[in-house]
């Protein structure tokens, strides 16, 4: 049964098992590979996408749940907050292996879209669901502050 929703600003109809997690529908049906598989149980955040602007874990969200909703993946990030986050990520050389970073960028962007000046505690709260085994956390924290700063100007 096909599911229709907004995907990165365009209407998308994916013909797949409605119980299939959104992650796999995005990757294997829509062909968008930026969103990663890390745990399959919403424990690591590698699969983070935006559902109506909220950071959610696509690995546990059935495709059927996004019918009529608005999904943004790393490929569809265009907000000024997103651009500031990505610029800061490169500026501060955040990624190591890079596998978790799509999810980190999605969570960081969702944070800045709601909170223009997050504190360290806000960052801990928004980002602790995103595991980085390379432990790039210090640079992620600095990059979020840097992105927030750049948006003020």
């Amino acid at each position: 049964m096909p599911t229709t929703f907004r995907l990165n600003g365009q209407t998308a109809t994916l013909d797949a098992d409605p119980s299939m997690p959104l992650l796999w529908a995005l990757r294997e049906v829509a062909g968008l590979h930026g969103t990663k598989f890390g745990c399959g149980m919403a424990m690591c955040g590698a699969c983070t996408v935006h559902l109506d602007g909220q950071a959610v874990r696509s690995c546990v969200m059935p495709l059927s749940a996004v019918e009529g909703r608005d999904i943004t993946t790393i490929e569809g990030l265009h907000s000024k907050q997103a651009k500031a986050v990505q610029a800061a990520w490169v500026e501060l050389q955040v990624p190591q292996c890079g596998y978790c970073q799509s999810g980190q960028v999605m969570s960081a962007t969702a944070l800045l879209e709601k909170n223009a000046a997050p504190t360290d505690a806000d960052i801990d709260s928004a980002m602790s669901g995103n595991i980085c085994r390379c432990a790039t956390y210090q640079r992620i924290r600095a990059a979020i502050h840097s992105a927030a700063q750049s948006l003020k100007v």
Partner: peptide, 21 residues
């Protein structure tokens, strides 16, 4: 010098085995 892989690992375009089709 900046990492050769930083940009691709920030915009989701870096290709891992998971992404290889």
């Amino acid at each position: 010098p900046p990492r050769v892989d930083a940009a691709a690992k920030t915009d989701g375009s870096a290709q891992f085995t998971l992404d290889f089709v």
